[in-house]
Simulated scan of single mutants.
Amino acid sequence: MTRLYAGEPAAGPWRAVPVTEVLAQLRRPRILAVDGRSGGGKTTVARRLAAAVPGATVLHTDDVAWYHAFFDWADLMRDGILAPLHAGEDVAYRPPAWDERGRDGAITASAASPLVVVEGVGIGRRELTRYFDALLWVQTDEDEARRRGLLRDGADAADVWAEWQAAEDPFQAEQRPWERAGLIVSGAPDVPHDPRSELVVAPAVRPSPA
């Protein structure tokens, strides 16, 4: 049985849909946000979306948050990436911690890119929604997301994972980004599908009437 995070409603019914159809349902966005839980499959979803659009770009909130803060990076994302893209400008952004710690390169995206997918926990927060054209929420079983996260980060990262969850859980519970998503994507689908060209999706979840 799927065990969802507290406060997150179960989506459904689920069906396999070609990635091109997902983008069409979202009205072919130019800037697309992909939010979900850590370890939930957001990066995989973002890459699959980008692979369907020649010239697409994938950006990661982790690069903005790097040595900065778990979630207190909305101003950096807005001023350094989303606002310029929204205004039709190229992006070549170095967050402050990159300079402080001598990280090479920059976060780059061309204004000419037909699709920029920005993925990461917290990208669907309210204060950033005006800067993207559509939002997807990736829903994943809590236990599966944790298993993936520890597999990715190493079993000795359990304490860091617990610290992260202590910040992520109340943040997402307050933000409720799934209520602003155009579609819900399964991060661990059990519906038969072609992982090369399809996503398993469910209709948007809307807030219950007060």
Rank of each mutant, 00 (worst) to 15 (best):
M1R: 09
M1S: 12
T2C: 01
R3E: 13
Y5Q: 10
A10G: 13
G12S: 07
P13S: 02
W14I: 13
W14R: 10
W14Q: 06
R15S: 01
A16R: 14
A16S: 15
V17Q: 15
V17C: 14
V17T: 15
V19E: 09
E21T: 14
L23G: 11
Q25Y: 07
R27Y: 01
R28W: 11
P29L: 06
P29G: 00
I31K: 10
I31V: 15
L32N: 04
L32G: 06
A33F: 12
V34K: 03
D35G: 02
G36F: 08
G36Y: 06
R37P: 01
R37W: 14
G39A: 08
G40K: 04
T43Y: 09
L49K: 12
L49V: 12
A52Q: 13
V53L: 13
P54T: 10
A56W: 04
A56S: 14
L59F: 13
D63T: 00
V64W: 10
V64E: 02
H68A: 14
A69N: 12
F70G: 03
F71L: 08
D75P: 00
M77W: 04
G80I: 05
I81D: 04
I81F: 05
A83C: 06
A83M: 08
A87I: 02
A87R: 13
A87C: 01
G88A: 07
V91F: 06
V91K: 04
A92S: 12
A92C: 05
Y93L: 01
P95C: 07
P96H: 02
G102A: 03
G105R: 06
A106W: 00
S110V: 05
A111C: 03
A112L: 09
L115S: 08
V117C: 06
V118A: 04
V121H: 00
G122C: 10
R126T: 12
E127Q: 06
E127C: 11
E127S: 12
L128R: 06
T129E: 09
Y131K: 00
A134W: 01
L135A: 10
L135C: 11
L135N: 07
V138G: 07
V138T: 10
V138M: 13
T140K: 05
E144D: 08
R147A: 13
L151I: 08
L151G: 15
R152I: 02
A157V: 10
A158N: 03
V160W: 15
E163K: 13
E163P: 00
W164V: 07
A166Q: 10
D169W: 05
P177H: 00
E179V: 09
R180I: 07
I184M: 14
I184V: 15
I184H: 04
S186R: 12
S186V: 01
S186G: 03
G187W: 08
G187V: 13
A188H: 12
P189C: 12
P189K: 11
D190A: 13
P195M: 14
R196T: 15
E198K: 13
L199G: 09
V200F: 00
A204N: 02
P207V: 11
P207F: 12
P207E: 11
